[in-house]
């Protein structure tokens, strides 16, 4: 499954597409608003599910090599955040789902295992 496969799954809005959205695989999910938690996770190929719409959230996603970010609860990213996501080439989606519902939907999609 790639990050782009999550768009229909989450009925998501694409804020920033990023150059690798359709190629980089997704295997794990980290859901947190605490960036300190994201920084201690030992995972690769993960998406970050969060309701924290700050520059530091995108920087954290970049530094830990997240495949992409999903903003939950219908949060709209501020212009600066979208710009930074573009600069750092991090795909950024938005969904009306809650953090729990988004994780559940991604979990089900991962179980189905859409091939990359």
């Amino acid at each position: 499954m790639t990050f782009a496969d999550l768009i229909p799954t989450l009925h998501a809005t694409v804020f920033v597409s990023g150059s690798e959205m359709e190629t980089r695989p997704v295997q794990h999910v980290i859901a947190s608003d605490l960036m300190s938690d994201v920084l201690v996770a030992h995972l690769d190929d993960f998406v970050l599910v969060t309701s924290l719409a700050s520059d530091q959230m995108i920087r954290t996603a970049d530094l830990v090599g997240a495949t992409g970010v999903i903003l939950v609860n219908d949060k709209h990213p501020p212009a600066g955040l979208t710009r930074l996501a573009k600069d750092l080439d991090i795909p950024l989606l938005g969904t009306a789902l809650t953090k729990f519902a988004a994780c559940l939907a991604i979990g089900k999609a991962l179980e189905k295992g859409t091939p990359v």
Binding site: L34, S36, D37, L39, L52, Q56, T60
Partner: peptide, 17 residues
């Protein structure tokens, strides 16, 4: 600071790890 997603007390130990 915690509301910005930091200050969980994991920083130094994580940098060391």
């Amino acid at each position: 600071i915690k509301s910005l997603g930091f200050g969980a007390g994991l920083g130094l130990p994580n940098a060391k790890r």
